[in-house]
Computed example of a mutant assay.
Amino acid sequence: MILEDLYRLLKSGHVQAQGIVDTMTQPIVVLDHNLCVVSANNAFVRTFEIERDDILGQSFFDLGDGQWEIAELRELIASVIPKAAAVIGFEVTHDFPAIGQRTFLVDARRLIHPGNNSTNILILFDDVTERRRQDEERDFVIAETRHRLKNLSAVMRSIAMHTQTEDRTAAEYRDIFLGRFEVTLRAQEIAFADQTIDFEVLLRQSVGEPGVDRLRCEGPAVTLASSKVLAVGMIFHELGTNAVKYGALSVPDGQIDVVWALESGPRDRTYLVCEWQEKNGLPVTPPRRRGYGTELIEGTSAHLGGKVELKYDPGGFAATVKIPL
């Protein structure tokens, strides 16, 4: 029931009016011309956990710990009597005695009966604490989603712009781009859910088919925060892609050994140090020029505050990746 409905009900002088007011779930209080409490319904007593006799005759602005003593609210309510005005939706947030921090919308209107020049004021309180919390959560989710989608769009644009087309067919470009796109989406799903992930699980997901069955992993359990999932996933996806194209995974008997450990660093930081070693692959020669994959691996490691060393040994490509946790 809104203030206007309640006002019309009480103005009619209906014999059941007071009983209806007492059954309402919204707190209601009536003040006299001195702004002292004349009556309060059961919801007001329950909501603020007070005794009715303790507030009758007391100034509204002295109730509790003075939570209603707000200059603007006092001015608005004081203007209701001489101006026959109404206060609609005045918001009050306060740490109330007994019930903690709550947010109320306050409505107030002069209560006039036919043939009666009453100066009583009817005040109704609408508890919107939960509604405000839900609104804030919704706004946060929308803002966060927009931010992450913008970041994802920027990442995909960068991948598209930097995936080289020289000496590649359209099908080769498509496969390379879609591979990077897929690992980015998998990482973003984890990041969106604000989840952590086991490093070995992320490593195997990033390398993907067909290399995962020829990937030998050894190291302690390491949990990565969601903020590092995309970057770490992209690093090892690029290493796995290069192994499929040029290294150990380009031949049937090739395999990859990945061994990692935790090391202490400056300022008590802990680092994940990972050794990637390819075996039984084709002879390795250093690339004639730096490609986007190399720049991505080195640049992403630096962005995380770590570093990477790429070694083009004839017996097999190797990489050392050091990432702060």
Score class of each variant (00 low, 15 high):
Asp5Lys: 07
Arg8Tyr: 14
Leu9Gln: 03
Lys11Cys: 10
Gly13Cys: 13
Val15Glu: 07
Gln16Tyr: 05
Gln16Leu: 14
Ala17His: 00
Ala17Gly: 06
Thr23Tyr: 12
Thr25Ser: 15
Pro27Tyr: 06
Pro27Ile: 05
Val30Gln: 10
Val30Ile: 15
Asp32Val: 06
His33Arg: 13
Leu35Ala: 05
Leu35Val: 00
Leu35Asp: 05
Val37Ile: 11
Asn42Gln: 15
Ala43Tyr: 06
Phe44Met: 01
Val45Cys: 03
Arg46Ala: 10
Ile50Trp: 04
Glu51Pro: 01
Glu51Asp: 11
Asp54Glu: 05
Gly57Asn: 02
Leu63Gln: 02
Gln67His: 08
Trp68Leu: 09
Trp68His: 05
Ile70Gln: 04
Glu72Cys: 01
Leu73Val: 11
Leu73Glu: 10
Ile77Tyr: 14
Ser79Arg: 15
Ser79Trp: 08
Val92Gln: 07
Val92Trp: 10
Thr93Arg: 12
His94Val: 08
His94Ile: 04
Ile99Lys: 08
Gly100Thr: 10
Gly100Lys: 11
Phe104Cys: 06
Ala108Thr: 08
His113Asn: 04
Asn120Arg: 09
Phe125Ser: 02
Asp127Thr: 11
Asp127Glu: 02
Asp127Trp: 02
Val128Asp: 03
Val128Trp: 01
Val128Phe: 04
Arg133Val: 11
Gln134Val: 13
Glu137Pro: 06
Glu137Trp: 08
Arg138Asp: 05
Phe140Arg: 13
Val141Ile: 07
Ala143Gln: 03
Glu144Trp: 09
Arg146Met: 12
His147Gln: 15
Leu149Arg: 03
Asn151Ala: 08
Ser153Gly: 08
Thr163Glu: 12
Thr163Arg: 03
Gln164Leu: 00
Gln164Ala: 01
Glu166Tyr: 05
Ala170Glu: 14
Ala170Gly: 11
Ala171Gln: 12
Glu172Met: 14
Tyr173Asp: 00
Arg174Lys: 08
Arg174Glu: 13
Asp175Gln: 15
Gly179Gln: 03
Arg180Pro: 01
Thr184Lys: 09
Thr184Ala: 09
Leu185Val: 13
Gln188Glu: 11
Glu189Thr: 12
Ile190Gln: 03
Ile190Asp: 10
Ala193Lys: 11
Thr196Asn: 14
Ile197Asn: 00
Asp198Ser: 14
Phe199Ser: 06
Glu200Ser: 12
Val201Glu: 14
Val201Asn: 09
Leu202Gln: 07
Leu203Cys: 03
Arg204Phe: 01
Glu209Gly: 03
Val212Trp: 05
Asp213Val: 05
Leu215Ala: 05
Arg216Glu: 01
Arg216Leu: 05
Glu218Lys: 11
Glu218Met: 14
Val222Tyr: 09
Val222Phe: 07
Thr223Pro: 10
Ala231Val: 07
Ile235Val: 12
Phe236Asp: 02
Glu238Leu: 10
Ala248Asp: 06
Leu262Asn: 02
Gly265Phe: 03
Asp268Thr: 11
Tyr271Glu: 02
Val273Lys: 12
Glu275Trp: 12
Glu278Cys: 10
Pro283Cys: 06
Thr285Ser: 15
Pro287Gly: 05
Pro287Asp: 10
Arg288Gly: 15
Arg290Tyr: 01
Arg290Asn: 07
Gly293Ile: 00
Thr294Ala: 08
Leu296Lys: 06
Gly299Pro: 01
Gly299Val: 02
Gly306Pro: 04
Val308Tyr: 04
Glu309Asn: 12
Leu310Asn: 00
Lys311Gly: 02
Gly315Glu: 06
Gly316Ala: 05
Thr320Ala: 01
Lys322Ala: 10
Ile323Phe: 04
Pro324Ser: 06
Pro324Met: 07
Leu325His: 09
